[in-house]
Structures are given as C-alpha cells and as structure tokens.
Design a binder for these strands. Structure first.
Length: 654
DNA sequence: CAATAGAGCGCT
DNA sequence: AAAGCGCTCTATTG
C-alpha cells in the first residue's frame, strides 16, 4: 500500500521517499521477505568522508521486485529558493566581504534517524545478503546507529569489488560504471559531494538511484562472477572485507604528545633548511618550485645560475631536479641545501601537517582526538580494490608509505603509531614473498633449491653467480644479487640494476648475462608466462588463487608499449599471488587469533594486528599460523616464512 | 576560483 | 625502457 500523497514533493516520488512511520514499517515488512538487499548512505557535514564519524542524512535501500526507497533523516532544505541572505565572511586576507547566500524553503517533515535504524536494525543484523558499492563506507556509517555500534554481519556482496575482479582496468565508481553498462549519466552535478546544498527532490532521486543501480549491478555481477570462474576469489575478497570493517571502524592510534613535539622539531628544522637554501643561493626563491630550481641549478653562471650539467630529463623533457638526478652534484652547496630542505619539508607536510591540518593552508585535521586521552585516531581506508594486481592501497591517510624507522626522521614518524593503552601491536611480515612465489612456480633450479633449503634468496643467487658457498657470500655480492633478483621480478634493465647494486652498467650487463646462463629456468618460465598470456583473449594471466590481470597492450605493435606490458604481466603474476596469500591469511585470522585480537593494517607483505597485552603472545602464535600455517603452506612447493614481533610502537617492528 | 597535469617522493 | 600505490606542491587550464 502506497502512503498518501505528501505536500512538498512530487507525486512520482511518494513511493520512493519514506517520511512516515507507516511507510517505514512497510519498507521493513517488504525487506523481511527478501534474502538480499542493496543499501547506500549519504553523509553531510564535517566528517562526511569518514564513515566512522560521519553524519548519515540519507539511507537508500533497494531489493528485488522493483522495490527501492530512500529515507531522508535531516536533510536541511526543501526544493526552491525563497530569498537570499547577506553574510559577512572573511576572505583569505582576513578582509570582511559580504557574501550572498540562498535561502531555501523548509524541507518536508522527515523521520528521526533513531527511529529509522531501530526499525531496520533487525534487517541489517540478520543473515540477509548485504549489497553495497564499496561496503566499508556504508556498513561502518550504518553501524554508528545500530545497537551497540555493531557492524552489519556477513554475507556481503560488494559490487565495487565484484566489478574490479571482473575488470581491473576500468573506472570503478558507481556513476562511471552505470554510464558504461547502462548508458545512464544520472548525477552530472555531483550531488553526492555535498548533498546538503542540493534541493530535497534532487537528492531524493540521486540517493534512490544509487541503491537502485547497486542492486542491478548485484544481479548482473553475481552471474558473471560465477561464469568467469571468479567465485573463489570473490569469496576470498568478501572474507577479507569482514576483517577490514572492524579495523576501519576502530582506526589506528597515534601518540598525541609525540606528534606535537615532532611538529615543533620538524617545523624548526625545515625553516632552518629553507633559510640555508636562500643563503647559499644568495637570494630568496620558492624552494618548492621545480621551475625555479631548474633555473637556479642549470642556467649558466652568466645568467645567475649554477651552470650545472643536466644529467637527467623529466617525461616532458625538462631538466630534472629530483634527488636522483642531483645525486652526482652532491657537494655543490646549493644542491646540498635543496636536497636537505626537500627531505624534511616532504616529511613535515605529509606526515605531520597532513595529519594535524594546517589553518594557514586551510587544511582540516584528519586525526580525531575524542577516543582515548593522549591518543589520536586516524581511519585509513584500506582499499581492497585499490590496485590492478590485487594488492591493497591505503588512503586518507596513506599508511602504506610511512617512512622506514632506519632513517633519522623516519624513526620518530613511525614511532607515532602506537598500540592503544594496555594493548600491543603484533606485527608480522612475509620473508621475500615474491621470490618464494617465483621459486614455487619454477619448481627447479638454483633459486628453487636454495629457498627449499631455507637459504635467503639473495644469498642463494649470489652464491650461484659468484660460485661460492652461501656462507662465503659477501655483503657486496649479496647486494649485487639483490639487484639481479629485482631485475627478474620487475624486469629492470642494466641501468637500474647497476644503480641498485652499486656497480657500473657494464658490470651489470655482465652479471645479467651470467644470471641468464645460471638460471635458465627463470627465463624459460618468464617467456612461457608471457607467451601463454598473449594467446588468451583478452591477454591476461591468472594468479595463484585465480585472480585475473588483463594487459591488452601485450599485443601492441609498438615495441616499448609491448615490452612494458610484458613486464607488467609477469610482475602481476608474482605480485598478485603475493596479494592472494596475504588476503587468504587475513581471512584466516578469526579462526587463528584469540578473541579480542584483530587485524589493524596490512602493508603488502606485512600484517599488523592489535591485541590486549595479556593475549599478545597467543595473538603472535595465531598470526603466524594464519600467515604460514597449513592451508597456506600447502599451496606452495617451497617454505614460506614469517617474522612476528610484539611491540608497543610500529617503529620497534623493524 | 576549481580542476587537472606534472614533478617529485614516501612505501613494499 | 622498474612493478604497484597516494600525497603535496606548483603551474596551467577552464
């Protein structure tokens, strides 16, 4: 039964917009007869981008039988502008200017959020299949309003993950996907970016269509996943998702005092280094401007430059001012000063000001200080569909590029990441997982034999190349072998190998030839992988657990393009299989870890868990089992190892 | 004024 | 001719 027509919005929406208790009860009644539903939220206000803290103002739900609704819960404006208001606002120079603001009519009466979620909680907490396009955002946002802050339980079907598994090379967002598959460009105004500024009816349509199309994608993808033999990988990803949600909701803790202290120190140091740049250059200039640096360094002395030789060009053919390009010019006072400044200013802007915000640059903090005294919380997005290879990406903030603790400024930065009070971080990383996977695929030869015997792969390679026993391998020989192994996995040329190994290009070429003679099985395997991939349509490879990586350029006519595709396809087999193993380990955590311990982060080959200190030891044992125990070990012909540490802060784990 | 491209650099 | 990412800043473009 449709509710009566309501004043204030168009007739055609009366079945879609839920604004009365009766209509809400009807929604719940229909959903209770369904075994799956898609949902989507819109958030407004300060923390709209942070699902753990955002203000949910719309909930839309779609399910079978053409049922779809949207439920506004505090949309501030109606449909038409009824006047305007002059508001004095400070401009960026602090001067007051009068700004005109539209005055909107009142929105229709809306349901109370509490009432909506109380009514729908049994549906969300049931064993129905929950469908969303990027589940973490919607599930964690909704969890704020469910009893006890509970996260809706599985089963899940995340359509963005399914779409990505079906084709990792296309835009994944709902709008581009709908445009591509259904030819409907339904939100050209970016309503979702700031719903509260758009008229009620417009948001109604937008919100409604989000869950409507998510449901259509579910219907479509469910079948395709099965048809393309992707059920196993999809199940794996949905298992990963289950572990991701609590980590996303809880966030990661930072030491608040250490961060404010570091801010002072890094700010001072960076200011000193900036002053040094201006002193040695003899004038003030913008040290962050590559254009100005180019002129300063490479212009002839007669024109006020340093007259340095250009050793490297950028993609657009400009003289490069990167650290790598300037390295040979070390010793020049200006070069030294510029590189010193670049070091700390990068760290300051990314890892300190980037977290705390910077009023001068109109940047909001991304840390929250309302959780535990003395601690700040960040809710990084560990994006399980963030790469083409299967790895995670991490953003807002990126916690996968925190500086290493073995550098002067890296240590205090990584030390910021701490366990919550009376908890420990339990950190484990796979040992040389990519070479282990390669050895598994090879099943023969010196690399395979070495890893089978538990020898460090770089040492094993060095022993073979230099014709010595593993115990006799020197540091320099191991470094050289490391460069060679790198070249295998990434397809690096002699220049990069030389640079990495600290040898000349001629020497690198010599060693690479020798490597090819001593490890023929590697090159045969590589050739075979590429040839088989090229024969498939579209050209692709499948990883250890069946994940696809398609690289259409593998059939390109142009040499450079095709060679790059060959490197990508081979690297994806290795890198993607590494991602498979890590994701499988993550799904094993609930069975392996003691109650109270959970995943916190993953950095490609590293898995960070958090546990109450009294069960940290158990957690460490469980983590090891999850990562290398039976079920993982059985997948490989060679042993996979992990190094587990129990620490108070992340910097201690290296 | 907002969006985008390019350069550069942090990580595995 | 080094695989995969995200963030900050400048300079340009709309």
């Amino acid at each position: 039964m449709a509710p009566p027509y309501q004043k204030g919005h168009a007739m055609r929406f009366t079945r879609r917009v839920v604004t009365t208790p009766d209509h809400l009860a009807h929604v719940a009644a229909v959903l209770s007869t369904r075994n799956a539903f898609a949902f989507d939220i819109e958030a407004a206000g300060a923390h709209r981008g942070v699902p753990a803290r955002c203000n949910v103002t719309w909930l839309s739900i779609a399910t079978g039988g053409g049922n779809a609704w949207t439920i506004p819960m505090g949309h501030p404006i109606g449909d038409t502008v009824v006047g305007e208001r002059i508001v004095p606002t400070p401009d960026k120079n602090g001067k007051m200017i009068n700004r005109r603001h539209p005055v909107w009519e009142q929105p229709p009466a809306q349901l109370d959020r509490r009432q909506v979620f109380d009514t729908l909680a049994p549906i969300f907490m049931s064993d129905r299949i929950k469908v969303a396009h990027s589940m973490p955002t919607d599930a964690v946002a909704v969890s704020q309003h469910l009893p006890g802050g509970q996260i809706p339980p599985p089963p899940y079907f995340d359509t963005i993950v399914a779409g990505w598994l079906l084709n990792e090379n296309v835009q994944k967002g709902l709008k581009p996907t709908v445009k591509r598959l259904y030819g409907h460009a339904y939100d050209t105004e970016d309503v979702g970016k700031c719903v509260e500024k758009h008229p009620f009816s417009k948001v109604t349509t937008y919100s409604y269509l989000d869950s409507h199309y998510t449901w259509l994608l579910y219907r479509r993808y469910r079948r395709m996943i099965a048809e393309r033999d992707l059920t196993g990988v999809m199940d794996l990803e949905m298992g990963v998702l289950e572990q991701l949600l609590p980590a996303f909701k809880a966030g990661t803790m930072l030491d608040a005092d250490a961060l404010s202290k570091l801010k002072v120190e890094l700010t001072d140091e960076t200011a000193r280094r900036l002053a040094a740049c201006h002193t040695v250059a003899g004038r003030e200039f913008n040290v962050a401007s590559t254009q100005q640096k180019q002129r300063l360094l490479f212009a002839p002395k007669s024109e006020g430059g340093r007259g340095l030789k250009v050793l490297q060009l950028t993609d657009t053919g400009q003289p490069s001012t990167s650290a790598e390009a300037l390295e040979p010019h070390r010793g020049d006072a200006v070069v030294d000063a510029l590189l010193d400044y670049a070091e700390t200013s990068k760290l300051l802007s990314t890892y300190v000001d980037g977290y705390l915000g910077d009023p001068e640059k109109d940047r909001e903090p991304i840390v929250f200080d309302d959780q535990v005294p003395g601690r700040l919380t960040v809710h990084t997005n560990l994006c399980q569909y963030g790469t083409v290879t299967g790895r995670f990406s991490s953003f807002q903030p990126n916690l996968q590029n925190i500086p290493r603790p073995d550098t002067v400024w890296g240590k205090p930065i990584r030390s910021l990441f701490v366990a919550p009070p009376v908890h420990k971080l339990v950190v484990a990383d796979y040992g040389q997982v990519e070479l282990v996977i390669l050895a598994h695929y090879l099943g023969e030869g010196a690399l395979y034999e070495g890893i089978l015997r538990g020898i460090d792969p770089h040492t094993a390679t060095a022993a073979t190349v230099f014709g010595v026993t593993p115990l006799q391998v020197t540091k320099a020989q191991r470094q050289c072998a490391k460069g060679l192994n790198f070249a295998v996995v990434y397809g690096a040329g002699p220049g990069k190998v030389a640079q990495m190994a600290g040898i000349t290009v001629a020497e690198a070429k010599k060693f690479m030839r020798k490597h090819e003679q001593l490890f023929p099985e590697i090159y045969r395997f590589k050739k075979r992988v590429i040839a088989e991939a090229r024969r498939r349509k579209p050209p692709h490879v499948r990883t250890l657990l069946g994940r696809y990586r398609r690289v259409p350029e593998l059939c390109a006519r142009e040499d450079g393009i095709r060679k790059k595709a060959e490197r990508q396809i081979f690297n994806s087999l290795i890198q993607g299989s590494g991602a498979d193993l890590m994701k499988l380990a993550i799904t094993r955590l609930p069975d392996a870890l003691p109650a109270g311990a959970r995943m916190a982060l993953t950095i490609h080959d590293e898995l960070v868990c958090v546990a109450p200190e009294e069960i940290a030891e158990q957690c460490a044992k469980g983590l090891e089992q999850a990562m290398v125990g039976p079920g993982i070990a059985d997948l490989l012909k060679v042993p996979l190892t992990t190094d587990v540490k129990i620490v108070d802060c992340w910097a201690e784990a290296k």
